[in-house]
Design a protein around this nucleic acid. Sequence first.
DNA 1: GGAATACTGAGCCATGCGGCTAAGTTACAA
DNA 2: TTGTAACTTAGCCGCATGGCTCAGTATTCC
Lengths: 115, 115
Amino acid sequence: MAQYSSTLDGVFQAVSDPTRRAVLGRLGAGPASIGELAAPFDMALPSFMKHIGYLERSGLIRTRKTGRVRICTLERGTFDLIESWLGEQRSIWEGRTDRLERLVTTGTVDKEIPA
Amino acid sequence: MAQYSSTLDGVFQAVSDPTRRAVLGRLGAGPASIGELAAPFDMALPSFMKHIGYLERSGLIRTRKTGRVRICTLERGTFDLIESWLGEQRSIWEGRTDRLERLVTTGTVDKEIPA
DNA sequence: GGAATACTGAGCCATGCGGCTAAGTTACAA
DNA sequence: TTGTAACTTAGCCGCATGGCTCAGTATTCC
């Protein structure tokens, strides 16, 4: 229901777990219910639901409930956060010092999406 | 000394912390000592050293000690792990089902670098 | 040699994560 | 209306993370 703000922290954390990456892979092929998503894993449902929770809070997926079934869909746009961070990193290597200056003075390279 | 094996788990985990991302940003401009790297952060040195440890274990940086100073350098190649994962993800969206099949049967999209 | 610099190691603490079970709740089916 | 299916909530457990302090080691400088 609520729109979760996607942060690099949250996205990278979400994606650092193999179970969650597998779920993202599956959802890349199209929406699926919790039950379908959970099936391949030898894990109790409540445990699996925690993973879904992280993915949703990170903004990488969205879910909606229809009847007694919850359907999950991929939020492809959120992956751009990762890509743009990679790009920034590489642009630093290239020696574009404009951004570097800010980095040295503020000690951060974070770029968060506006809520 | 030891070559650490870079896994997606480790790399994403390492990169999910703002302090560590800032360090990577700084190192993008060239090697630096622990002291130089730690300076911008309001944090005790041993705490900071833990971050360096994670970065090194993930394979994102390398360090060597010269005299009493430890110098850190970026391992740019490790960033490719992230990029290739993004690429795989996108190729699933494109509908290339070869990889998808493996995904559905094994329940994983992991790709680890051989030790 | 003695002091200062630059880490390093040991260990404590609070919180978060990834798993579990047991007991709800809600919708669909018979 | 009585089940059953598909989550959901609550709460427990052990380990990891991110911070700290305090003490130790190893270089370098005077």
